[in-house]
Nucleic acid binder design. Structure first.
Lengths: 221, 221
DNA sequence: ACCTGAACACCGTTCAAGT
DNA sequence: ACCTGAACACCGTTCAAGT
């Protein structure tokens, strides 16, 4: 029973099983993963280099669900092919950014217990890079210069990741203690029950940020 | 050499040494901490219940540096004491929020390697609660109702935490690969060298968000 | 090429034993 | 009350051995 004729493992199978394990139990250890795959822990090392490697696989798996809006690739190319006007339409790239941001958050939200795991490792995932790329193209389409584009992408990324964390493992045990003010206590009482609380806050914050970007799009930078 | 006449350990000493260890090496294990304290690992359990307990101590330690603006406590109380007008001044609570947010981020930023550790545990720290409380009071002072206040605090918290993470462990190995667009490549080239890159992005995003809040303060919610 | 089992150097935590 | 040392059940990873 040493080497089976058809391999029991593959990187894809490991990624899927690992993500399912994290989703289900929140834990992620090599023995637990091996058990889920019906294999011995040391077998995993025939396909991955380390535990961190598997975390990267899970990141890719989680992000693969993103549907990036089909943005014309070398953006200027669409001008000569007739028809539509220069498409300065601010609505365009704002809507694109909104779509990307929401898709990005949803990818996280589908795997809440994965998020704290991701922050412990450094990213090196191609799909995530493509998300940033799409955002950068959208800002460029909105007239942002290179440096402003990078800051803008950073801002969006920070807010999205923070929102995902907030939703996944509430950063506060939302519970007013004896020292809490009336204002805070009332806010908790009013908001905590709300069903889509975290998501509604995200959407509101996203619109705040995008609104700010749109307002600045006219200025020089 | 069993029990010394004067205790070698205390919760405070453990908190300080743990934070110093994380700041210096990024690692955090009980044996390493014990060595740093000149003590055996099992001794720690006379003062803390678990490793998670120590993480909470570190969170408190990191947050204790925050200077919360002295906001009049039961806010309405300052009206009758004469002098200043009702102080509808939007500038007031916006400036207060800005100060809190920056202080909050700086507390994180001073201990970048602590941040990923924090996200793996659930918060139960009194100082952090006080930060939220101060934010809630500021929004209430700005005319926000309870539910809107909770969403607003959530938005700020998410952005701050996300920014801290982004700054601490760059969420992307910021490196354009072969599939990167011209826009993204240029943005990276223009922005990556910038000295205070992460902090400038944070300040810009913060102003975007606060600006949005200020603009909405007049509406009904 | 790919799985197994034994082995290594760790880890967090418990607990009797000491003072 | 508080520190020690031994012990327990883990963990990630390596590697010779098998096919």
């Amino acid at each position: 029973m040493a080497r089976p004729s058809t391999p029991k493992l593959s990187r894809a199978a490991i990624a899927t099983a690992a993500l399912a394990l994290v989703d289900r139990s929140g834990e992620f250890t090599m023995p637990a993963l091996a058990t889920a795959l019906g294999v011995s822990p040391s077998s995993l090392y025939n396909h991955v280099g380390s535990k961190a490697d598997i975390v990267e696989l899970m990141r890719g798996e989680a992000m693969s669900a993103i549907r990036l809006p089909a943005l014309p690739d070398p953006l200027p190319d669409r001008l000569p092919d007739g028809g539509s006007p220069p498409a300065a339409g601010d609505q365009d790239w704002m809507a694109v950014l909104r779509g990307i941001a929401i898709g990005y958050l949803d990818s996280y939200a589908r795997h809440p217990r994965l998020i704290p795991l991701l922050t412990a490792y450094t990213v090196r995932d191609a799909t995530t890079l493509r998300v940033y790329d799409a955002m950068a193209r959208a800002f460029a389409a909105g007239g942002y210069g290179p440096a402003a584009t990078l800051r803008a992408v950073t801002i969006l990324d920070s807010f999205i990741l923070g929102s995902a964390l907030d939703a996944a493992a509430p950063t506060v045990v939302w519970e007013a203690d004896e020292a809490a003010s009336r204002e805070f206590t009332e806010a908790l009482a009013a908001g905590l029950g709300e069903p889509q609380r975290a998501r509604r806050a995200f959407l509101e914050g996203l619109d705040l940020i995008l609104g700010g970007f749109a307002a600045r799009a006219g200025e020089s930078f």
